[in-house]
Amino acid sequence: MQTPAPFEYEHASSVDEALALLERHGPETRLVAGGHSLLPMMKLRLARPERLVDVNDLTDLAYVRREGDQIAIGALTRHAQLASSPLLASLYPIFQDAERVIADPVVRNRGTIGGSLCQGDPAEDLSAVVATLGGSLKIRSRTGERVVAARDFYLGPYETQVGPAEMVTEVVIPIRPGAGSAYEKVERRPGDWAIAAVGCFLTVSGGVIADCGIGLAAVGAPGLPALEAEAALRGRPAGEEAYAAAAQMAAAHCRPQTDQRGPAEYKRDLVAELTRRALRRAAARVMAGGA
């Protein structure tokens, strides 16, 4: 047993109550949902919040639903719900690809999409998935709601746009009919941080890539979009030549660091290979979908 430093604990039964508690108790207060990032850090005394506000009872924030031309995902939706959602499986199989390689069933049963995104871990998978798909996040405070694009959400590692008295309530993903998507990751062992991971989506029209997104994990900022690679793909015929060019671009523009998981050059090389593999798989799904 590891013993966290002393902290206060409160329980919120509504979003408004959670926001009121955040406002009342100030910046050393943290929301806790699944707790799979925060609690280990507290047990190691690397994080020492003065107060936790438990939001596990806000079950009205646990949903995956279609709203017009968008998918809305409540912030308290657990990994296991994302993994088993028929809506996501049919529109964006990238979610299932990613969920299969996120930690283990115990973590997936408790961890939430809101917690995952707000942790701001550069190696976190859903940050890369949401950035890939050009999603956005709804952020609420006592005074109102704002919407921030996932690609603008991170200020740096472990730093987001969410202020001390705000909380993310929903993630919104635009629906792109006929899109194919995929997620590829290499890790030393399930549950470890990724060595590198790549997500992508493609839409293809007349054999030409009409739209695309590529998001990277563990090789730079959280949910790092591969903007140059995306530009290189758009308007190009789908195929190995395009994928190879995009792979080179993604590898050249990511910012990996040498650590226990390997040297930066290895991670760059992995980004190239995983970009190729993800694009191939996404394209195959486009074809299977009949676009």
Binding site: V186, R188, I195, R261, G262, P263, E265, Y266, L270
Partner: peptide, 11 residues
């Protein structure tokens, strides 16, 4: 025999 160690040997 971790992935990065094998990659380095292959390089």
């Amino acid at each position: 025999a971790s992935p990065d160690r094998i990659w380095q040997l292959m390089q």
